[in-house]
Simulated scan of single mutants.
Amino acid sequence: MTQGYALHIGLNAVDPSKYAGWHGQLFACENDVAVYKSLAEKAGFQEIHMLLTSDATTDNVLQHLRDAAAQLVSGDMLLLTYSGHGGALIDSNHDETDNFGEMSGFDETWCLYDRQLIDDELCDCFGQFSEGVRILVFSDSCHSGSVAKLAAPVDMHTTSDPVTIPRARFAPLDVLMRTYNTHKATYDTIQAPLKTRQDDIRAYVIQFGACQDDELAMEVSGNGLFTAQLQQAMQEPVINYTALFSVIERGFNGRQHPNLFHYGNKAYDFMGQAPFSIQSAPVNVQR
């Protein structure tokens, strides 16, 4: 039977001692986890795991990804979701091709509780999955472009309820630089051996991002804006991931625009499948 493994990560704060005194408070990320967990349950995923705030450490996340890679075989599916701050880290192994002006040469990161998880690490993890495994990623976080371009401060509405205040899910540049300088040896050591490229990945990865690299991902009224739009989109009869993305896009305007990309070994017509469906049929489509 086709297997489904889901890992949902949500952080409403980080450990200040690991981020130069910054606590990174948010209010809606753990709520997002409940949304993704519900979608996984409805889709029939056999294993569903949640890592909330202090449990969302790099060791825990990486161990779950190793476990999933060991269990899943061709045709199986990993659902990986993240809600929290997006960050950036100096690209010390010089493999980054993104160009964000004065901040070119930075890796994108997820701000986990104890440190930043580098995009190189995720790519390396995905490279451990068997050929034909489908990996579906939802990242409701700001990308490094928002930090690089030093976006304007978010307008804050006067309210007694902090959950209803619009907040951006990005780590301030000064915090990121102080954090890197304090833990430089650790981050450089992690990056040095990581050389997996997207073309080396035998799995097929689809990734939904809450915004473009030069934008902010917002949260308001109890959820990330992207996650709320995804939840609403799933109320419609969307036939595949391209259609799902189109429906999600309709809910946005202004400064935040979702992103969708896919890569890896296309052993299955993943993009053409019903969203979140574990069942699939193999086709003769290669990279």
Rank of each mutant, 00 (worst) to 15 (best):
G24Q: 09
A13Y: 07
T186E: 14
N12H: 01
F100Y: 11
L89T: 11
K18S: 13
L225M: 08
L260C: 05
S17R: 13
P16N: 03
E41A: 06
N60T: 02
F208D: 07
L78E: 12
G87D: 07
Y241H: 14
D91M: 08
V175R: 01
N259M: 10
R197L: 14
T81V: 10
E102D: 14
F276V: 10
F27V: 11
E47V: 11
H143P: 02
L39A: 14
A13L: 03
C125I: 07
G84Y: 01
V133R: 04
H183P: 03
K266M: 12
M271Q: 08
F45W: 01
H8E: 06
T159L: 01
G24R: 04
I48H: 02
Q229K: 13
L65I: 01
T182K: 11
T182R: 10
Y204K: 13
A267Q: 13
Q231E: 13
L72C: 04
V175W: 02
R115E: 03
A228G: 09
L89R: 14
F129A: 05
Y187H: 03
S280V: 13
S104A: 13
F270P: 12
M103L: 10
L122V: 05
K37S: 13
N284H: 12
A152L: 10
A274K: 11
T196C: 14
Y113S: 06
Q46N: 12
E121S: 04
D114T: 11
Q235R: 10
L80G: 05
C111Q: 03
F170R: 12
E47A: 14
C125M: 15
S83H: 05
A151R: 12
G209S: 13
T179M: 08
M156D: 08
A68E: 09
L176R: 01
G145W: 11
A6H: 05
A281E: 07
V175L: 02
D67E: 15
R250Q: 15
H23L: 07
A192F: 06
S74E: 15
L11A: 06
M50G: 08
G84E: 01
D140V: 11
Q286R: 13
A88G: 15
I165A: 10
S38A: 12
C29S: 09
F276A: 08
S144T: 09
G44S: 04
D67F: 00
N265C: 15
G251T: 00
Y113Q: 05
Q231Y: 01
D214H: 08
V283H: 13
T189K: 15
S160G: 14
L39Y: 00
I9E: 06
D107C: 08
D124W: 12
Q235F: 02
D76E: 04
L52P: 00
F106A: 06
R134Y: 00
P237T: 08
A281T: 14
L260V: 06
M234E: 02
R115N: 05
L65R: 03
Q198V: 15
V33R: 04
D55G: 06
E249C: 13
A40Y: 00
T159M: 04
A151P: 07
F226T: 09
S92Y: 07
A217Q: 05
